[in-house]
Amino acid sequence: MDDTNQINEKDKKPVESTHKIGIYLWIWGLLFVLSFFSYMVDWYQFQGMLRWSLILFFMFAKAGLIMAFFMHLFWERYALVNVLLWPMTAIACFVFLMAAEFEYTLFSRMFYFFVGGGA
């Protein structure tokens, strides 16, 4: 078994060094702030594109912070990060196409099933 020699403890986990507590507290605080802002979007009743872009911005910001720091993705090697993120393109494609689909369905229903729609 000597050629499958074990690695000494020091080298075993090269990327898993612990991080300073400050970074966690910072991210924690940021998450509260962002959640508060996204709540404010509803409080002030923003409408239309502004509302949507704000909602999505805060959502992705929060998700990004959680993934990057709490889930340590920021410190992971790109091999793992890429494996995790590329499949999301399939989801993105699915979302875009279903958005087109619901518009079409809604149009069909409004046009053919509601009085005045066919006019």
Binding site: F111, Y112, F113, F114, V115, G116, G117, G118, A119
Partner: peptide, 25 residues
């Protein structure tokens, strides 16, 4: 030249196609 709008719930013996009665078309 226009079809009237319809609804499934309107369908009965008197209205076999479920045409919306208040649709002028």
């Amino acid at each position: 030249g226009k079809l009237g709008t319809t609804k499934v719930v309107n369908i009965n013996d008197d209205n076999p196609f479920g045409i919306n009665l208040d649709d002028p078309y």
